[in-house]
Design a protein around this nucleic acid. Structure first.
Lengths: 256, 256
DNA sequence: CGCGATTTGTGCACGTCTTCACAAGCGCCT
DNA sequence: AGGCGCTTGTGAAGACGTGCACAAATCGCG
């Protein structure tokens, strides 16, 4: 998945190439661009226009150009972007040139699935260690990794130089685990437990709450229902017809 | 915005009380408030100040007040918000007064975990049907539900009046499944496959990409590393200290 | 070598979101 | 009753994000 096209990626040799501080919104989209680029590369494209890449990533082309312009000028006017070069560039900015180790804590229902999720490995991460507080789960092997007791976290984190932790425990344990992760030197946490974590400054937390996503969808369902219940105020009742085709350009189809 | 719709309990009496169209950012936070409110209710609070609720939800109190003000005026100056009333109000706005049925497609690694995820049931949803295209998986029982073949989706969706679909298939199958869901009348989709879906207008899609969350964290790791490598330019070098206790502010949320 | 077709990079205007700061409202205590 | 402290609700300002529209740059071709 990673060709070495441009080994002369910016800097990396000692001197830090002064990461431009990107807008958060841009950072959040870069991984999506990266995924689209890999897909395009696999399809044989060597260059891609902003329009094409925007389509594959499901965003506006002007927005994409502005996002990429923050990284520097890596396109060629009249031609487009060099796919391989852009892949290298985005991977560098995202810090994916080194394969980062991830510690996963909480090997329950969800943790099990995460431990076996191929998407992590294929997108630059290595699930380096699994932990659980329940002795009954310790020792289990998943995908070639043995589940260890949470108390071994400090040693394991140091040995494997782990900077990212994933919390997939029940809510009741999440804050305690977060504290333990921080104590072990972890500075980034991905939290699947539906609760707010309190962490020291300098530690980043991102939260994924599966139920919240459904609730947001539920709101829109509710709104759609209350709209169709009323006499449509000029809006053409869309009425999701069975067999509906993807007609208007919301998102573009990408190869399946 | 001095609109007094239903001074008493939220709607639920037949007529739909003209949902105010909330800012998207507000909608995305309401579920978090709801979770915090349930937690507070369980802890015995009957009323809560915006400051207190904001703390429990991990947001700024001014933002919270503005968000809630969009729903109407459900607080009492000098006192705070009535917890039970606010719970009812938010649940109504989010369309959670009816327990919505969800169809889950793709019973692989992740799908298995989602099918057994207790958080869905406890937050207003009912996983009503499981589907997979692989005949080998059809017939398996998970949590009291039998995995059915994807071709039975139309009938099942109609019987159970399912409006929300969850896609947990590999990328290669995702678009096809999305088409099938839409054809079956589903108007909201939660997509776990790392790809862009093309759907007709009127169908909402939300995407959860676990690897993207890690990549965003990776970016901040990268940035933190390149900052500590440089002589701090006036900024107070924080240097995430291990063992630090959650002292000062709240959780440092990265991005949206 | 010049021209036209194409596409990037960006200035600008607009809309959305966030945050501050404070008046208005409410309850409690004297 | 009146005053005082507390909290909500909101106007205004600023920060941030988005999208248009176009100049600048590049390629291919005759």
């Amino acid at each position: 998945m990673s060709q070495h096209r441009h080994p002369d990626a910016p800097g990396r040799a000692g001197a830090v190439p002064a990461l431009p501080d990107l807008p958060e919104a841009t950072v959040a989209r870069l991984p999506e661009y990266l995924r689209a680029l890999h897909q395009l590369a696999e399809a044989g494209h060597e260059t891609i226009s902003s329009e094409g890449l925007a389509g594959a990533a499901g965003v506006n082309s002007a927005k994409l150009r502005k996002d990429l312009s923050h990284l520097g000028s890596y396109g060629t006017r009249g031609v487009g972007y060099d796919v391989a070069l852009l892949v290298d560039q985005i991977e560098f900015v995202l810090g994916l040139t080194q394969r980062r180790g991830v510690a996963l804590v909480g090997i329950g229902n969800l943790g099990h699935a995460l431990a076996g999720y191929a998407g992590f490995a294929s997108r630059g991460f290595r699930v380096a260690a699994l932990f659980d507080a329940d002795p009954a789960r310790v020792g289990e092997e998943i995908n070639g990794l043995i589940v260890r007791h949470i108390d071994e976290l400090p040693r394991a984190a140091a040995e494997e130089s782990i900077a990212i932790g994933v919390i997939a425990t029940p809510v009741a344990a999440a804050q305690r685990v977060a504290d333990q992760l921080v104590a072990a030197g972890v500075t980034s946490i991905l939290n699947f437990a539906p609760c707010v974590l309190s962490v020291p400054e300098g530690v980043d937390v991102r939260k994924v709450d599966l139920a919240i996503e459904l609730q947001i969808l539920s709101f829109h369902e509710h709104r759609k229902a209350s709209l169709t219940a009323l006499p449509a105020t000029g809006g053409s009742g869309f009425t999701a017809l069975p067999g509906g085709l993807a007609a208007p350009g919301t998102q573009e189809a990408v190869g399946t």
